[in-house]
Structure formats: C-alpha cells, structure tokens
Design a protein around this nucleic acid. Structure first.
Lengths: 116, 116
DNA sequence: TCTTATACCTTAGTTTCTTATGTATAACAG
DNA sequence: CTGTTATACATAAGAAACTAAGGTATAAGA
C-alpha cells in the first residue's frame, strides 16, 4: 500500500488553488479533486480548509465568484482568477520555488566546521 | 537588494532543527544562525518559534538537553539528537521530499481537459 | 559607558489547518 | 421506490505553529 495522504503544510493551499484556477474557472469541489488527482492522491484537501480558503482568496480580490449550473445540472459556485489573482499566482509559485531552494540548501548542506 | 527573509511555512521548522543537530550537538541560538546562514538568509527563525520548537522536540523524546558552558564562556542549553530523533530526521526529510514532489506535480501540471 | 552580540524565555494574537457536523440534490443499485 | 454513493456547499470547535513584542542577563568592543 502507498502512504496515506499527507496533511497540508499550512500556507501551501492558496497557491494550489490559484494554480488550478490558472487553467480556467472552476468550482470548489472540482478544484479539490483536481489537486488530489494531479498530486497522485498525496495531498487531500479537507473541505474545512478548502471553502474558507476560497472565501479568503475572494475577499482579497484574487478570485471572482458566481453561481452557475454545471454540465451535470447542479448548482456550483464557480471561481475565476482576477488579474490580481494571476499576479499573485506568479508571485506565490516563485515564493514556493525560493522556499524549496532554501530548504534544499539546508537539508543537503555539509557542515561548515562546528555548529556552535 | 535581495528579498527579505520569508516567513516559515508552518511545519518545516522541526526538520530544519533536526537536520542541524544531525551534524552534532548545538544550542538554540547557534541552530538558528546556522539555518539562517545555510539558507542564504532566506529563512529567518524567530526566537518565539525556535525555543518552543526545541521544547516540543525534547518533549517528544527526539532531543536531549543539558546546560553547558560554550567555548566563549557563556551558559547555553545544548541539544543532542536521540536515536528517535535520528529516525525522525530521516522520516521528515523523506516526507518533505514527497511533499515537494506532490507540489511540483501540481504546479507544473498541464490541464487534463476541463477542470470541472 | 553605551551599544551590539550572545543566549535564553514567555505571552498574546493570528493564521490556517483538522475534525466533525449539517444541508441538499443527482445518480445508481437493489 | 428506497437506500447508498457522489456531488456540492457551508460552518463551528479545536489544535498547531507561527509572528510580534516584550523581558532577563552577560560578554565584548567602541
């Protein structure tokens, strides 16, 4: 068996949502499934994290929301990236890259003499 | 000018501390400086995050602590990785790797048709 | 003597998760 | 036609782990 899904690192959900919406408008439930699928079920988005995050991003003006009827005939709140959201997406992807680089430097560092 | 230091992603400090102590015993202030230096000043460890984290790890039995006098003649609480701490270090480095892989898959994914 | 660096600690507040619960409808199985 | 699963949203309570801001104390150097 594979690992169970990992808990989210606090602060990484926003960029995942923004990235998903970078492909086009979508609604919460679909966003969550997309993230889960593209990460090979490593990341599981709890609904209690997802919906507040969407409201947060909307409140910051990064997303626009509107109720629509999906292809399957159900009501869903469809989110669209705003221009500010697109800028934020770029910034957060780049911040994530820098963070990974910094962590990698630390986790792969060789000691520079004594750590004291 | 370079970027200001990034805020820590919650959940990444423990592995940084464990990694630092993987090189040998050290005390809080030195650990913090080492992380800051090896990440090229990208990560700045707030003392309000550092000291509680050390106590947390000690409480979990991952570190042992003892007061010692440093080479510069000052009192410092020196932490040492326990056997459990070494195992945890391995586990957390590997968990971080998996997390980065998952995030990378999501952030570099191409859309698989409609996100709906 | 004043400032900076070293070295520790703590509290209050914030953010962002997890867990649990609730609503409602569509689709499908039996 | 009825029960279960999947879809789709939401919220509340609690936990975890930060930031910000303050405090203590000593050593070294200007």
């Amino acid at each position: 068996m594979t690992h169970p899904p990992m808990p989210l690192l606090k602060g990484t959900l926003d960029v995942l949502i923004l990235k998903t919406l970078g492909w086009g408008p979508s609604h919460g439930y679909a966003i969550s499934r997309w993230i889960q699928q593209t990460t090979g079920d490593e990341l599981h988005i709890e609904e209690g994290a997802l919906y507040p995050a969407l409201r947060r991003l909307e409140g910051k003006g990064l997303l626009d929301a509107s109720w629509k009827t999906t292809a399957t005939g159900r009501e869903a709140k469809v989110y669209t990236l705003t221009a500010a959201g697109r800028r934020q997406l770029k910034a957060e992807v780049s911040a994530w890259s820098r963070y990974v680089s910094a962590m990698t430097r630390a986790l792969e560092a060789r000691p520079t003499g004594a750590i004291a």
